[in-house]
């Protein structure tokens, strides 16, 4: 199967990074920086912290490129590294703020729904063309309102689609706790996004 231009670029990038060519990092920022920034921003919610996360991610990519074996797409790998850097930054911030872990204030044992997420009422639903943009805004607003421990698992698992094992490792959660947290977060998001869910195709249904 022939490779796309991006895959060829990625293969070259990986090879250059493994040869310790620092200009490859600059090219990486040029090619994939916007998406990395999107990931970092989703975790940190502000440009300043997102910048720090990107720096951490670049250092990780530089240090860990030797372990990248090409089993997954390079893009997935760098976004995963960025997501992990985001998670680490959140943990660090929590320690500074309250000296508690991300998990200390919540229980994963009960089935109590999370408090309802409040989305802005934008009146009647827009037509199909405007719907995509509006939908994106509402999805992001809903995720933003999730309490941080829930937001993190949604970002790692449902947005970045990290394997459960990696999310468990990154968050330090047990499998039952992770599942419980993810499920409650999804239910809260579902509740908030219900007006937008009708007519959405789901391939698995």
């Amino acid at each position: 199967m022939s490779k796309t231009v991006e895959q060829i670029n990625d293969a070259q990038l990986v090879a250059r990074l493994k040869q310790r060519d620092k200009s490859a990092l600059e090219d990486l920022v040029h090619i994939h920086g916007a998406k990395m920034y999107g990931v970092a921003l989703q975790f940190m919610r502000n440009e300043y912290d997102a910048h720090e996360v990107m720096q951490d991610a670049l250092v990780s990519i530089w240090n860990k490129i030797g372990s990248f074996e090409g089993k997954s797409a390079f893009t997935s790998w760098i976004y995963r590294v960025t997501a992990n850097a985001g998670l680490m930054a959140l943990r660090k911030r929590k320690r500074h703020e309250k000296d508690i872990s991300l998990d200390a204030t919540i229980s994963d044992d009960d089935d109590t729904p999370l408090p309802a997420l409040q989305l802005k009422d934008k009146g009647p639903l827009p037509d199909a063309e405007a719907m995509t943009g509006e939908l994106g805004q509402q999805v992001r607003a809903a995720i933003d309102q999730l309490p941080e421990p829930y937001r993190v698992v949604v970002l790692l698992r449902d947005v970045e689609e990290l394997p459960m094992e990696e999310v468990m490792e990154a968050t330090g959660l047990s499998e039952p706790a992770l599942k419980s947290r993810l499920h409650r977060a999804r239910l809260a998001l579902r509740e908030a996004l219900l007006p937008y869910l009708k007519g959405q195709d789901t391939q698995k249904s």
Binding site: Q42, V139, R140, I143, D158, V159, Y196, L197
Partner: peptide, 8 residues
């Protein structure tokens, strides 16, 4: 939707 629309 979360996967498709989350990232700004």
């Amino acid at each position: 939707l979360t996967h498709r629309h989350c990232l700004p």
